[in-house]
């Protein structure tokens, strides 16, 4: 058993019925980095996250976390290591913000246990990080889309896991809230945790991610440090658009410009 080596995927295949979603994915994702997973719609990004969380069993190949198959960690145990922020977040019942954030403590609570002071503390810190502490007692059904999404992110932070998966977690948010959530994620990576984010916006990925994974039709087209993988050649190959990748003076990172047609 190798401790804390992160994810290791070897020749992972997955299909929905006879529609292949992943076709032989090989990836090594050591801990402590910010990974951006990019690719066209339907390239298998969300499926990849589901496989990492053992929500879906690969048809072939192996997914290891810290040297052991993810399926062998057990649901509860895995929930203490990997948290997910999904892209859709309908909450049909009027739970308060605090109640939803405290659900992040579920993997630590005994069946009939109530949250301890430490659990509450964890939830408070998560809400403070997302700037939603004052919404504590509000019902989630009455929140705006942006507020709701921050509640869902706070719920994942309260889970206090070494690894955080973001599945297009900011696709419904305006740019300020998007940056806020990526800052919070970045801050966690600075403290030695791991973030694996499915991102649509290449410039967002370029600004925050240490490494990028380009998926195309269920295969890894390129993977590695952002500086070497984010090239106009890769973008042309995966997305089929013309672009220029250059260091931007204003944000101090690589940024992509596209040719928008005539």
């Amino acid at each position: 058993m190798v401790e804390n080596t992160g994810f290791l995927l070897h020749d992972v295949h997955f299909a929905y019925g006879d529609k292949a979603a992943l076709r032989g994915v090989d990836l090594t994702l050591p801990l402590g980095r910010f990974y951006g997973v990019v690719g066209p719609n339907g390239c298998g990004k969300s499926t990849l996250l589901d496989v990492l969380m053992a929500n879906r069993q690969p048809r072939q190949g192996r997914v290891l976390l810290d040297g052991a198959a993810v399926g062998h960690h057990g649901r509860r145990q895995l929930a203490r290591q990997v948290a997910l922020v999904p892209q859709d977040f309908a909450i049909p019942f009027a739970f308060t913000v605090l109640e939803v954030v405290l659900m992040g403590r579920h993997p630590y609570l005994p069946r009939f246990g109530t949250p301890t002071a430490a659990d509450l503390d964890c939830a408070e810190q998560a809400m403070a990080a997302l700037g939603i502490a004052e919404l504590r007692e509000r019902s989630v059904t009455g929140l705006s889309g942006g507020e709701k999404q921050r509640v869902v992110v706070a719920r994942a932070l309260a889970q206090d896991t070494p690894i955080l998966l973001l599945d297009e977690a900011t696709s419904n948010l305006d740019i300020r809230h998007t940056l806020e959530i990526f800052q919070v994620a970045r801050e966690r990576v600075r403290h030695g945790r791991t973030v694996i984010a499915v991102v649509h916006n290449l410039n967002l990925a370029a600004a925050y991610c240490d490494e990028m994974v380009f998926l195309d039709e269920g295969r890894v087209a390129a993977a590695g440090p952002t500086a070497t993988t984010l090239t106009s050649t890769t973008i042309a190959e995966v997305f089929g658009v013309e672009s220029r990748v250059a260091r931007d003076d204003f944000c101090g990172t690589l940024q992509v410009s596209f040719r928008y047609g005539d």
Partner: peptide
Amino acid sequence: VYYGRDLNIIALGSRTSDSLGVE
């Protein structure tokens, strides 16, 4: 009542409840 908290979490959607350790 035994599965009450699991049922609360299932309200967040099955992907989330799976990721929170609910079977």
